[in-house]
Design a protein around this nucleic acid. Structure first.
Lengths: 222, 222
DNA sequence: ACTTGAAATGACCACTGGTCAGCTATATAG
DNA sequence: CTATATAGCTGACCAGTGGTCATTTCAAGT
């Protein structure tokens, strides 16, 4: 029987390997939150997870494959939390607020989601990509099912809502990714611009417009 | 009097320098369209524009400063084209379609817009960033002014529409940035997923919902 | 205690963006 | 028409990157 504990020893059983892999992922998540995507280096991650750089590549094909896994875990975490937090007969606005807040509360979900398609997916093997898309489908379906009863929508409408919310979330939170100009002496016109792109109202207002639009279409088109 | 022509000679006058700078930008644009953002290397760009790598840094502070300039030029190009193509009394749908098509027609605008806030802006000096934001404000105002008459909206509504269209465009075209899986043997569930995220209908449908939503709000709130 | 196979290692590779002391083309002064 | 000063240009160089793989090391099975 192999011990579940993996300190510095070699991981021989599948179980031990999974533990080590997860330990690396946890180190990566913390490190990523500290330095962000661009400054994240595999050599540093090795040091921080107490493992040689080469060892990282036994557990992940590429840097991007590691980030893809991190993304998947954060997606599943978010979807679980959001589903649990939803209540029945919720207004569109409350729904949008909850979605926005739960998504932003996760320290890695949005930064990874934003980079998914144009960076991360470009250095991952196709079968791994397919696996990842399937996880995505599963999560969307789960969230849509719960959303259907919460928002009183048909199954098809709920799927459309969830997909669209994802799209809107990526667009609306784009500005949050700008370099922090908080302690810079900015001219007022630029300050106003930044304020006018505040992601929370941007997301919520448009989420409501879209959800209500979808509802309205169902009434006019039988 | 300094000749306007700059072949391989040194650029001494301000005019010649501007020409050389523009020549580098044009080489960069072609090269970028060929290889994309990640594979774009300054050494290669030097070779392709017939200039040493070090020289590039006389004209641009960083790789990202170069991309920021490329982005600005494509933004101005798009906004000019879009304004010219708009006609009065256009429907929301026709407006959305035109916006989508003109934005996608430019080979570099969207790929750069998508990377603006979370990559490009992070390696550019603050004064340069402020300058860039001002160009952005100017362009948004120009497009909004024309959109107000085209869509018969108030000035404030038009600004909101234009800003929101930008957000939606970034989100909706995200999927177009995925690695091309066209000639891969994908399982049908994944194929369906990809099809359901087709950016054109995604953008247009939601653009219409948002524009109509903004219109409706004006009627209920005096 | 010995064998064995696989986990772990880190020097190594080809590359990156960015720098800067030295080179040289050019405009101007004598 | 030449000498000088200026400044545009260069490419070797630097510290770093993601990724590889021959070699080492250690735990399990005999």
């Amino acid at each position: 029987m192999s011990a579940a504990i993996s300190i510095n020893q070699r991981a021989r059983s599948a179980e031990q390997k999974a533990l080590r892999r997860q330990a690396v992922l946890e180190a990566a998540e913390t490190y990523f939150q500290e330095v962000g995507y661009e400054a994240f280096s595999m050599a540093q991650l090795g040091k921080r997870s107490g493992v040689a750089k080469g060892t990282l590549y036994l557990y992940f094909d590429t840097r991007e494959a590691l980030f893809l896994t991190l993304y998947e875990q954060s997606l599943m975490r978010w979807s679980r939390g959001f589903i649990d937090a939803l209540s029945d007969d919720i207004t569109s606005e409350a729904y949008a607020k909850l979605l926005y807040r739960t998504a932003l509360a996760d320290g890695v979900f949005l930064p990874l989601l934003i980079r998914l398609e144009h960076v991360i997916e470009h250095n991952v093997a196709i079968p791994r990509l397919i696996e990842s898309k399937r996880i995505f489908i599963e999560q969307v379906e789960g969230v849509a099912k719960r959303s259907a009863t919460a928002l009183q929508l048909s199954a098809a409408q709920a799927v459309e809502v969830v997909k669209t919310m994802g799209v809107l979330l990526i667009g609306a939170t784009q500005t949050d990714q700008s370099p922090s100009l908080a302690d810079e002496a900015l001219p007022t016109d630029v300050q106003n611009l930044i304020a006018s792109f505040s992601s929370e109202p941007l997301f919520i207002k448009n989420a409501v417009r879209i959800i209500e639009g979808i509802r309205a279409e169902a009434l006019s088109n039988p």
